[in-house]
Simulated assay, not measured.
Amino acid sequence: MYRERADWKKYRERLVKEVRDFKQLRNKFVEEKVAFEAEKKAEEWGPEGLKNNLQAAEELLSKERAEWKKVCEKDNRRMYAARSKITDLEAEISTLEGKVEEAQADKERFEAELNARMVNKDKDLAAKDVEIAELKRRLFEAHDKNESLEIDLEAERGMAETAEEVKKKAKEAHDISTSVLNLA
Results as ranks from 00 to 15, higher is better:
72 C>R: 15
52 N>K: 11
120 N>F: 11
52 N>E: 14
67 E>R: 06
16 V>S: 12
35 A>S: 08
20 R>I: 12
89 L>H: 00
147 E>V: 12
150 E>V: 05
121 K>R: 14
66 A>N: 08
117 R>D: 04
18 E>K: 12
14 R>W: 04
126 A>S: 02
52 N>D: 09
40 K>T: 01
166 V>L: 13
1 M>K: 06
75 D>H: 06
110 F>L: 15
162 T>Q: 13
132 I>R: 08
60 L>M: 15
146 N>H: 11
73 E>A: 02
13 E>G: 09
100 V>S: 00
45 W>T: 02
32 E>S: 03
115 N>Q: 12
35 A>N: 06
140 F>Y: 04
142 A>T: 04
11 Y>L: 14
174 H>D: 13
54 L>Y: 07
170 A>L: 06
41 K>C: 05
77 R>S: 09
114 L>I: 01
139 L>H: 08
138 R>S: 00
137 R>Y: 08
140 F>G: 02
2 Y>W: 15
39 E>C: 06
166 V>C: 07
55 Q>N: 07
40 K>V: 02
113 E>Q: 05
10 K>Y: 07
45 W>F: 12
164 E>A: 13
91 A>E: 07
99 K>I: 01
41 K>T: 04
162 T>R: 09
131 E>D: 02
103 A>E: 08
98 G>T: 08
110 F>A: 13
85 K>Q: 05
75 D>K: 09
22 F>C: 10
67 E>K: 05
43 E>G: 05
81 A>H: 08
98 G>Y: 06
131 E>C: 02
3 R>V: 09
47 P>E: 05
96 L>E: 05
141 E>G: 06
